[in-house]
Structures are given as structure tokens and as C-alpha cells.
Design a protein around this nucleic acid. Structure first.
Length: 662
DNA sequence: CTAGGGTTAG
């Protein structure tokens, strides 16, 4: 009766609590906070609080710091008779919950040493610690000790080990263990076993097999639950297979009557955000809020904040943060990291910096993600000094730079033509050892992105030999070059006039996926014509259509540029006119390229016509075109009467820095 | 009393 009253009350409160959320058609015209709503909110809070007061915790469960835990453990081991295994287990669990996995293992080993009682619960905690530290093999060694102690391992232990294998990406072994449990009837998998195995399959993109396993568990009499469905739905969303995700969602809700929860909705909303399907995001958000059992939480809102930031709508993201606060939730570091990253991506470093500086006053501590966004922003804004300064601050603050941190710095230094400094960091990242807390973490290893950035830097300063050596080193590390590496190498070789090597590599790769990319052709066409091999560039341009590739604006532009370079103005003009017909209209860059071609070849009438067209399309001249125009006017090869028109084509920002003759 | 699902970065 009481339970029914509470749940009824809760439902009502949740329902009225909807007024906290703005109308969903426009999530940003936020409704103000009514006093009534405040009252309901505090009531809701008190209800969820009183429900929570289960059982008092024992002194072993209450341990909150490591010293305390060790002292208590020492005291326990002095007692005779020894305390019960339950108390030891509670202490172990408390230490594990604090994420002091290796300390927890030390305590477990000591227990074994002094002959304290050890049951399968203690062993499962110890195994959990091994797995959490990516030392699943040690977990299996502990499993062996189960057999020696005549302790029968239970399904908890196997689930933990299975998860350890999945965490370490040892998917084949996970599958083997899973099958062995069933075939040898070691223990019957439960829903957790299935969801863990399904998570592993999803992690490797085997969504179909994961769905197969979902069917299998049902057939074997293990009812799928929300977690199992959520795991697959999220994986489908991440693979942009949103229709399949919704198919499963409908099956779960309507055919199986399994309740979706906040995680189900959050996954789907995230998937829709990634596809920019905003109407459906609103619809789902509305559906979620109208279901009295479900309410969006901070993670749901963080996804919305991030989505707005990625759309470049930082103002709207900030409005979502206001809504979070109005609803009585607390924005966390993830919320602000998205916001800071959004500013950095738009080059708004002053705002990013002031957000960063305001974190402390909000009780938030920047983490390595925060720093990486700022580093990236500073590097892209060519403020390498500021980035370097911040990079050193990371370790000073007791944080550990990760591979991304290093990669951002490496590419930033390379972009500035400082490959030596980049290489220093590149070598340094491998040396990072164990942090002082004794938790063993793997040292950082340069990954494919680190190598690619480094290669780009070496090519930039013309050090092809060093690039070649680094490429071989990368291969010897077992790193497979990806499409990005491939493009960097092609462009690098082109820029250094290594024509034969480029063509050799291109033909070596043949018709593989790498060469069915228009970007590759753009690099090659541009590269070949810059190396004076216009005939090869032309062949490539002919070739790409045969391979089923569609030239884009860049393709046409580099081709026009190549033709202009060789003074083949008629052909350039012809190609230029073909662009509109091909549904690929020239952009500002194309116009500038052709204009420079005309200017170099003293084609005054065409210059005027092109300038008029640019004005009509609201395009502007770039800095190098402008200086060439000025030069030609000074030399008298372009008529001064065009100055007025030219003035219209100079963007405002350039007016301040460039002297335009009057 | 232990085990499984959703958010941020190049």
C-alpha cells in the first residue's frame, strides 16, 4: 500500500516536473522556474532519498581512505580468532570500490599468506581487481587457485573474467570461454554473461552476431533484459545504423514488453544527434519526458550540449546548461569539456580560456580531455607557445598526458615547421612510466596518428629520408598505415618532387580501397602538375571517372590551377565552364586560381569579366590574388578603372591590413 | 555481498 502511494506520488511529481523542461519543439525557449516546481523538486528529492536508507554499513564497508583500510586490516589480522570472512570481504570490496586495485590484491595475498579464510566472494573481488587493471591472465591464475582450494567458482567469477577478456580486446578467447562454459556445463550463463559477450561482439562491429546471441539466450530460456537490448542498440547507433536500432527498440518495447530506460533513450538520442536528425531528437526527448518512469539525466543533457557545440552553436549549448541547472542537476566536467572544445574548434580561444579558468570556481577539476581540447585550439591558432605552456601544466597538476595529448602537440609543432621539437615529444611519450600511486598503467606508445603527424612534419621541412626511416619504424611496430597516412605520404612525396616514388606507391596500392578516394586523386593531380607533369595530372583526371569517382570542387580547382600554370588558358576556361554543367559550381578558390592564371597571362578582358562574376556570386579575392592585381595595375597591364570593382571584392578583415591604392 | 549497458578530445 505504502509502496503504491509512493510510486503514485512519484509518478505525479515526475509528470508535473515536466514543466522543468522547455517545450520540446524549441528546446531553448526555456520556461522559467516556478515556486511550485521548486517545491515539487525538493519533494522528489526527499522521496528518492528516504527510499535509499536501507541498512547501516559495517565499519569495514565504511572505509574511505587507503591508510585507514591498511590499519584496519593489520588490526584484524592481530585478532584471535581471526574475524569472519565476511568482514575481510567487506574490507576488500571497499578498497576495490576506491579503485585501489593493486592494494586490494596485496591485502588479498596477505590474507592467503596468514591463512585467513578465503571464499569465492573474496576471490571474485581479487579477480575483478586483476581484470580492471587489464591483467586478466592474473585473474585466470586466481581461478586456478579456486580449484586448489576446492572453492567452486560461480557465475560471478566467470562473468568478471569474461569481461576482463573483452576489456583487453581478447574477443576470440572470450568467445572460447563463453562456449566452454556452456558445452562443458561449467556454469549456466545468465543475463550478465550474455550481455558481456554481446558487448564484446559489438565492440568488434559484429552487431549481427550480437543479435544472434540475443536470439540464442531467449531460446535457452534466459530472458533478455533492458541491459542486453541497450548494449546492442547503442552499438547500432554508434555504427550509424539508426533504423536497425529503432527496429530493436520497437521489438523490445512492443513485442517483448521490456521497459526502456534513460540509457536506452540516451543511446538513441546520441545516434540521432550524430546524424543531425534534430526533429527526431526532439521527438524522442519529448517521448522520454512524457514517460513518467524515465527522466533525462546529466549524461543525456551532456549529449545535447556536445551536439550543439559540434554544430558550432555554443550559445545554444550554454542554454542547455541553464536548463540542466534549472532542473536541479549539476553540470560536470564533461559538460564543460564539450563547451570548451566547441570554442576551441571555432578558434575562440579567449572564450575557451575564460571557461577553463572558471572551472575551479564551479568546483570542477580540469582533466586531460579539457587540456587536450585547449592544446588543439592553441595549436590550430598557431599559438604554439601557449600550447607548450599548457602542456607542461598537465604534469604539474598531477595529470597524465595521454596519446592524444602528445599527438596534438606533435602535429602542432610540425605545423609550425618544428619537427625536431615534435620528435623530442614523440620519443618522450614512450618513456612515461608508472604513476606514484603504484597502479600499473601501460606506458604510452606512439600510435598511427602520432606517426602520421610526425611524417607530415618531416615532409614539410623536406626531410624525405627521415620520413622513410620513420615509416619503416612504424611498420616494424606493427602499425598499419591507414588512408590518412597514405594521403600524407603521397602529398609529402609530391611536395618534395619525388615523382617516381609517388607513382610507384600509387601503382603499388593499385585498385584497393585506398585509391578509390577522391582526396587521393586531388593530391596526385595537384602534386603532378606542381612537379611539371601536367600530362600525368590530365590522365589521372580522366582516370577517376572510369573508377566511378566523382570529381569535386577541389579536383576541378587543382586541375584548373595546373592548366593555368602551364599557360593553357583556353583549356582551363573550358574546364571551368564545365563545372556548373556537372553540378559542381566553382567556389571562391576556383575563381581566384583562374583569375591568377589570367593575370599571369595578361588577359585583361577576361579578368574584368571574372571579377564581375565574382561580385555576382559574392566571392572575394584572396590576399595573393589581391597583391597580384595591385602589381598589375601598377605595371599598367590592368586598367585602373577596375579598382572600384576590386574594392568591392576585398573582404573587410583584409582592408585593415592591406593598402589598397585609391 | 559480488558481475553487465549510455556522455567529452586528434
Amino acid at each position: 500500500m505504502m509502496a503504491r502511494t509512493i510510486s503514485h506520488l512519484r509518478a505525479n511529481i515526475r509528470f508535473k516536473g515536466d514543466s522543468f523542461l522547455p517545450p520540446l519543439q524549441n528546446p531553448l525557449s526555456s520556461s522559467r522556474f516556478s515556486p511550485h516546481a521548486t517545491l515539487l523538486a525538493s519533494l522528489l528529492h526527499s522521496i528518492s532519498f528516504s527510499n535509499n536508507g536501507d541498512r547501516p554499513q559495517s565499519r569495514y564497508q565504511k572505509v574511505t581512505n587507503l591508510d585507514h583500510a591498511f590499519n584496519l586490516f593489520d588490526e584484524m589480522t592481530q585478532r584471535r580468532p581471526l574475524p569472519s570472512v565476511v568482514h575481510f570481504a567487506q574490507l576488500l570490496n571497499a578498497v576495490a570500490k576506491m579503485k585501489h586495485f593493486s592494494s586490494c590484491l596485496d591485502l588479498f595475498k596477505q590474507m592467503c599468506l596468514i591463512g585467513a579464510p578465503v571464499n569465492e566472494y573474496c576471490i571474485s573481488i581479487a579477480i575483478k581487481c586483476c581484470c580492471q587493471m587489464s591483467r586478466t591472465n592474473d585473474g585466470f591464475a586466481l581461478l586456478a587457485s579456486c580449484f586448489r582450494r576446492a572453492v567452486v567458482p560461480n557465475v560471478f567469477i566467470f562473468n568478471t573474467l569474461l569481461d576482463g577478456l573483452v576489456v583487453e580486446n581478447r574477443i576470440a578467447e572470450a568467445e572460447r570461454l563463453f562456449k566452454k562454459l556452456i558445452k562443458q556445463k561449467i556454469c549456466e550463463p545468465n543475463a550478465v554473461t550474455y550481455s558481456t559477450m554481446i558487448k564484446g561482439l559489438c565492440k568488434f562491429g559484429n552487431n549481427d552476431i550480437a543479435i544472434g546471441l540475443l536470439r540464442l539466450m531467449d531460446e535457452r530460456g534466459c530472458k533478455p533484459n533492458t541491459v542486453v537490448y541497450n548494449t546492442i542498440i547503442d552499438s547500432l547507433c554508434k555504427a550509424k545504423m539508426i533504423e536497425d536500432a529503432f527496429k530493436l527498440f520497437n521489438e523490445m518495447v512492443f513485442a517483448k514488453s521490456i521497459q526502456p530506460d534513460v540509457i536506452t533513450y540516451t543511446s538513441l538520442i546520441h545516434g540521432l544527434c550524430n546524424l543531425c536528425r534534430w526533429d527526431e531528437v526532439s521527438k524522442l526527448l519529448k517521448e522520454m519526458v512524457e514517460d513518467v518512469r524515465i527522466s533525462p539525466d546529466i549524461q543525456t543533457f551532456n549529449i545535447l550540449v556536445d551536439a550543439f557545440c559540434k554544430e558550432g552553436r555554443v550559445d545554444e549549448a550554454e542554454a542547455v546548461i541553464d536548463i540542466i541547472v534549472e532542473r536541479g542537476e549539476v553540470p560536470n566536467i564533461v559538460t564543460y569539456n564539450s563547451l570548451i572544445d566547441g570554442c576551441c574548434l571555432r578558434g575562440e580561444m579567449t572564450k575557451a580560456r575564460s571557461l577553463f579558468d572558471s572551472l575551479t570556481s564551479k568546483g570542477l577539476v580540469p582533466n586531460v580531455v579539457t587540456y587536450n581540447s585547449l592544446l588543439n585550439g592553441y595549436c590550430k591558432s598557431l599559438k604554439i607557445e601557449e600550447a607548450m605552456h599548457l602542456f607542461h601544466e598537465i604534469t604539474r597538476k598531477g595529470l597524465k598526458p595521454n596519446v592524444r595529448t602528445y599527438n596534438v602537440m606533435i602535429s602542432g609543432l610540425c605545423r609550425e615547421g618544428m619537427p625536431e621539437e615534435a620528435k623530442h615529444l614523440f620519443r618522450k611519450m614512450g618513456e612515461s612510466g608508472c604513476p606514484p600511486d603504484g597502479i600499473t598503467r601501460k606506458g604510452l606508445k606512439p600510435d598511427i596518428v602520432s606517426y602520421s603527424a610526425m611524417l607530415q612534419g618531416l615532409f614539410r621541412v623536406g626531410r624525405c629520408g627521415a620520413a622513410r626511416k620513420l615509416f619503416d619504424e612504424m611498420r616494424s611496430q606493427g602499425l598499419i598505415p591507414n588512408e590518412c597516412t597514405y594521403r600524407i605520404i603521397l602529398a609529402g612525396l609530391c611536395n618534395n618532387h619525388q615523382v617516381e616514388d609517388v607513382l610507384y606507391l600509387f601503382h603499388l596500392v593499385g585498385d584497393s580501397k585506398l585509391n578509390t578516394d577522391i582526396q587521393v586523386y586531388n593530391i596526385l593531380i595537384d602534386g603532378m602538375s606542381k612537379c611539371g607533369k601536367l600530362d600525368i595530372a590530365r590522365d589521372l583526371f580522366q582516370d577517376l571517372t572510369l573508377k566511378g569517382l566523382k570529381p569535386n570542387v577541389r579536383t576541378y580547382t587543382v586541375m584548373v590551377s595546373g592548366l593555368c600554370r602551364e599557360g593553357m588558358l583556353e583549356e582551363a576556361k573550358h574546364l571551368f565552364h564545365r563545372m556548373d554543367e556537372s553540378g559542381c559550381p566553382p567556389n571562391s578558390v576556383t575563381y581566384n586560381v583562374l583569375l591568377q592564371g589570367y593575370l599571369k597571362n595578361q588577359n585583361s578582358d577576361d579578368v574584368e569579366m571574372l571579377l564581375e562574376e565574382m561580385d555576382g556570386r559574392r566571392y572575394s579575392v584572396d590576399a595573393s590574388t589581391l597583391s597580384m592585381l595591385i602589381e598589375k595595375i601598377a605595371a599598367g597591364s590592368v586598367d585602373r578603372s577596375m579598382l572600384k570593382l576590386i574594392g568591392k571584392l576585398v573582404p573587410k578583415e583584409m582592408m585593415d591590413t592591406t593598402a589598397v591604392p585609391r
